[in-house]
Each structure stands twice: as structure tokens, then as C-alpha cells.
């Protein structure tokens, strides 16, 4: 098997342009609606970069601009050192794209889907034939190779979509919510495959609203909200900056949580209808202090601070759509 990328080429590209993807003040407008409102981005070769954000935050619009299927409204954007506005076909030739909704060719079989997609990239029939065998194995679809696409399960279709996106050995793989709607087994299998790609040196850009997915897969991520980037860093950095090492959850069944009584027990206290969340460096110590003050929760839980806490803090708890 050929390595998925030629590291020298990527390194060279990176040196020349300071990143595989570089955006400055990037905006996207649909009529009166501003979907992306001036974002800066730098994606380095070999990293797994994540976009986190609620629905409508502008993640998919950004992804579509990077994949050169949506012209930017304003700002600067280079992908692989080229301008999507004028060099779209040349950029797309080196990208792999996994869209949010599977758009497999239902009039073709599993193998034919890979085959014809490779032909769109101008690859030779012999090359595509060999590559399809390799990718069917990668996606664990070898025994369904000559089956119709339509009756496949959601997980299989997703795997096939990812396999298809790899037909041209892309240097940069864009995945828009790769595991939405999949069962846990299918998700873990997909994560495993994405891990392997990363080890082969493929640069990944992933959008998700699953925090565990972002923590599992991303070296670095940005949180988007309302078309803007509201935070940036590695999962660990973001937790350290916007959350606390531990979170103490005090659950009250009958009484309303007494927020005033908990005042001063933690760096930050959040009051929910049935719970108090105490963001603290030492959960057990805060719990003992709460009991001393006479707080009597029905149950309590000490857990690590997670990306989900960061996310909710940054983007709020209100439903977006």
C-alpha cells in the first residue's frame, strides 16, 4: 500500500503558505443572513482539527468554503496554498470530502461508487480498481462490494462515503459530522478508521457537536457560535481555560437548590432547575464543605471537567434552532 500522502509535498506546501488551510476575516453571507462572520483559521499539516458548535453556528458553511464548493463572501482563504476562487478544481483534486448527508450514487453498486468517483478525479481504471479493493477492506465492506447501496445500514453507508473520499489519496480530509446518527458500534469503528488515517499523516478537519468525538479525535479545535470563533485550543487547554479540573454536581429533588448557601464553595457556580454545578479544582473537598454548611442534596456527583462543560459555557444552554 502506498502511503496516503507524500510528506515532503505537504511539508513544502506548509512552509510556503504557513498552513494547509489559512483564513483571515473569512465571511459567508446568504442574502441577509450572515452565516460566517469573519473568522481566522490556520490548519497545520498532519493535525486533526475540529469545529465545534451548535446547529447553525457556521461550521458547515465554513467547511463548504474550504472544500471549494461555496464561494466566500469576503476575507482571505487559501487551501493547500491556492485560492478556491480561481483554482477550485486543482484544490478539490487533492481534497477528500465527507458531507453531512451521505450522497452516494444509489444507481450504482458499492464498488462502482468507488470506481466512478475515482474516475471523476481522472485516475486510471487500473489504479481505481486496485484502490477500490484496498478501500473496501479499509471500510470493512469487502463482502458487500457488489451489493446495491440503498439497502446498506447507516453505518455502512457512512463508511462507504469515507472510503469514497479517500479514493484520490487526499492530503486533507474534510468530515462534516461524520458520526451523526450512528450507533455506538458504528461510531467506534469510524473513529478507529479516522485514527488510522491520522497516523498515516492525513490532515483531518472535522465538524461535530459530539464532545466525546472532539476529545477523541481532535488535536486542536475551535468553538463556533453565531458565525464566530469563540474559543480555540486543544481539548485540554480549553477545559483548563473555560472549565475546572473537576465539577461537583449537587442534585436536589424537592427543594429548589439553595444557591446562596453554596456561595464561595467553588470558582464558579451554575444554578440549574434541579441541580447546582460547582466548578472546582477539588470536588471532594467542595462536597465536604457543602455538607458542613448544611446543604443537603438528594445526591451528589464528582466528575472531571469535560469539553461539554466548556461548550455549554461558551455557547449557552438555550436551544439554538
Amino acid at each position: 500500500m502506498r502511503p496516503a500522502i507524500v510528506p515532503d509535498v505537504v511539508a513544502e506546501t506548509a512552509v510556503r503558505d504557513g498552513g494547509l488551510v489559512r483564513a483571515r476575516g473569512l465571511t459567508k453571507q446568504f442574502g441577509d443572513f450572515e452565516a460566517v462572520r469573519g473568522i481566522d483559521l490556520d490548519v497545520e499539516p498532519g493535525e486533526a482539527f475540529g469545529f465545534l458548535g451548535p446547529n447553525g453556528a457556521g461550521k458547515s458553511s465554513t467547511m463548504r468554503m474550504v472544500s471549494c464548493v461555496s464561494p466566500r463572501t469576503g476575507g482571505d482563504l487559501t487551501v493547500l496554498g491556492m485560492d478556491p476562487r480561481t483554482q477550485g478544481p486543482d484544490i478539490r483534486a487533492r481534497l477528500g470530502v465527507v458531507p453531512q448527508q451521505d450522497n452516494l450514487d444509489n444507481e450504482l453498486t458499492v464498488r462502482q461508487n468507488l470506481h466512478i468517483y475515482g474516475r471523476y478525479f481522472g485516475l486510471s481504471k487500473a489504479h481505481v480498481r486496485a484502490k477500490a479493493v484496498e478501500l473496501l477492506d479499509f471500510a470493512q465492506l469487502t463482502d458487500r462490494a457488489d451489493a446495491e447501496v440503498e439497502p446498506l445500514s447507516g453505518g455502512m453507508k457512512r463508511r462507504l462515503t469515507i472510503a469514497r473520499s479517500l479514493i484520490n489519496d487526499p492530503e486533507l480530509l474534510l468530515l462534516d459530522e461524520p458520526t451523526t446518527g450512528l450507533d455506538p458500534q458504528a461510531r467506534h469503528l469510524l473513529w478507529d478508521r479516522l485514527f488510522r488515517l491520522r497516523q498515516q499523516g492525513v490532515t483531518l478537519i472535522i465538524t461535530t457537536h459530539y464532545m466525546d468525538e472532539a476529545e477523541q479525535l481532535c488535536d486542536r479545535l475551535v468553538v463556533m457560535d453565531g458565525g464566530k470563533i469563540v474559543a480555540e485550543g486543544s481539548p485540554g487547554e480549553l477545559i483548563a481555560r473555560y472549565c475546572s479540573r473537576e465539577v461537583l454536581e449537587l442534585r436536589f429533588v424537592t427543594d429548589k437548590p439553595d444557591a446562596a448557601a453554596a456561595e464561595g464553595l467553588a470558582d464558579r457556580i451554575e444554578v440549574l432547575p434541579d441541580r447546582l454545578l460547582l466548578y472546582t479544582s477539588d470536588g471532594e473537598a467542595s462536597l465536604a464543605a457543602a455538607h458542613q454548611r448544611g446543604l443537603a442534596p438528594a445526591s451528589s456527583l464528582v466528575r472531571r471537567g469535560t469539553l461539554e462543560d466548556v461548550f455549554l459555557r461558551l455557547t449557552g444552554r438555550t436551544l439554538v434552532d
Binding site: 464548493v69 486543482d90 478539490r92 483534486a93 481534497l95 458531507p99 450522497n103 450514487d105 478525479f121
Partner: peptide
Amino acid sequence: YAKLYDAVLATPLG
């Protein structure tokens, strides 16, 4: 319905 061209446009084809 088939969204064929959405997939095609992610390749070099225009």
C-alpha cells in the same frame, strides 16, 4: 433527489 451533483462537485469537476 439523488443529490448526484453535490457529490460530483466535491471532485475536480465543475
